[in-house]
Amino acid sequence: MVVANMADFNTDNMKMRAQLKADGLTEVKVLISHPMETGRKKDDFDQLIPAHFIQLISATLNGKTVLEAQWGTGISKNPYLTFRLKDAVVGDIVSVTWQDNLGKTATHNIAVTQA
């Protein structure tokens, strides 16, 4: 049962874009479908909805870690994130991986394009 919980999310749950801008910085935008339940909300039957939220997220550029984040329950539902990278060129691969408190995880890779 627990093993089934750890099955990877389909990468359809993530949308990403990495664009090299005129200022030489690459802007990476990430959108993840995730409920980000705090564990404090009640459902229609007055039952607490269990906490379900992303705890760890990391980004790499060509396999090298560029960003590591820890999140709590205060990130909005369907999390949105923008970050910027120096030293990236068109064709470089940006990869983002997350893991939630139930052990679910997903990864999405995208190539840097010219804005």
């Binding site: 994130l81 990278l85 990236a88």
Partner: peptide, 19 residues
């Protein structure tokens, strides 16, 4: 809410949405 660590040429810049 969140904690971000920057390495290997990531700019100290973040946009996100919070509760």
């Amino acid at each position: 809410i969140a904690h971000f660590t920057f390495t290997n040429g990531a700019e100290p810049y973040i946009v996100t949405r919070i509760k």
